[in-house]
Write a protein that binds this DNA or RNA. Structure first.
Length: 272
DNA sequence: AGCTCATGGCGAG
DNA sequence: TCGCCCTGAGCTG
């Protein structure tokens, strides 16, 4: 299973886990041992529902508890049908029925939460563009009174839940927004367009399980690129394209460090 | 075999 | 802002 842990992929995982385990009585264990107590607690119980909020995934158990999973940078789910494979390496959690299995490795978080703890966690993160119940006003109220750059705000999970480094770079490019512009200097019109675009792009990314952000009219230019430019698995304008010409204007795509993460942008299409 | 880097986030200072 | 945690792929030698 390709793991690309921005919000779109977490929602993709939630759907997959939901289809396999909702209303099913499951088995669970932790071959690695680091979630042994949690797995033993869940083993033999029925799964109620599976939810994604930003990059957080919650598996609801019939006693009201939740398995909370955050993949971080390295976490991965694997899914399969039929008999579960013999665990190889560090497997934190396995869930299975007679028909299907799922295997989790390398997550930043895998813990059992009480219902109140899960609600508090969801309340603490910002609106998630993929969720129908998301309230963009919460994001706007943070952005429009902030001196922090829009590039940093897009990565702040308390402002925009689920946006990662690829969507950050790409949505800024699509709106000709300089990453260093302070949030308070982003107009309401621009914010609204940005939000709608995140909803469209990330929802599409959930269905496809990959990130594509290049508009149809620019696809011929994108398709003409060397294959090694496309290592993230989708078609993009600027992400990881530093030193190469912008697809639209030919200027050299820039890269810089912003709060320990790489930021990509076109200096000509996204002027200061 | 060993090093670097990655789509993330936390806590210490 | 830095160091640290988690894992695996893609280099280098």
């Amino acid at each position: 299973m390709l793991a690309v842990p921005e919000g779109n992929v977490i929602h993709h995982h939630a759907r997959r886990l939901g289809r396999a385990f909702t209303r099913k009585q499951v088995h669970a264990d932790s071959p690695q041992g680091r979630f042994a107590d949690g797995a033993a607690h869940v083993d033999g119980h029925r799964i109620r529902r599976v939810e994604a909020h930003g990059k957080h995934l919650f598996i609801g158990v019939d006693d009201g508890t939740w398995i909370h999973v955050h993949l971080g940078l390295f976490g991965k789910w694997r899914f399969g049908r039929g008999e579960r494979p013999v665990p190889v390496g560090q497997v934190r959690l396995r869930i299975w029925t007679d028909e299907a299995w799922a295997e989790l490795r390398g997550p930043t978080a895998c813990e059992l939460l009480m219902d109140a703890e899960k609600r508090d966690l969801v309340r603490r993160i910002g609106p998630d563009p993929i969720r129908k119940d998301a309230d963009p006003e919460r994001a706007w109220s943070r952005v429009h009174r902030s001196s922090t750059s829009i590039g940093a705000l897009l990565m702040d999970q308390k402002v925009f839940a689920g946006v990662g480094n690829i969507y950050r770079a790409e949505v800024l490019f699509r709106h000709e927004l300089n990453p260093y512009r302070p949030g308070r200097e982003v107009s309401r019109e621009t914010f609204d367009a940005l939000w709608v675009d995140l909803v469209v792009l990330m929802t599409k990314g959930t269905k496809r399980g990959r990130i594509d952000t290049v508009r149809e009219e620019h696809l011929p230019e994108a398709m003409g690129r060397a294959p090694r430019e496309d290592r993230h698995g989708g078609e993009v304008y600027v992400y990881r394209r530093d030193g190469r010409p912008c697809l639209l204007c030919g200027a050299e795509v820039q890269v810089a460090d912003l709060q320990g993460r790489k930021l990509y942008w076109c200096p000509s299409c996204q002027p200061a």
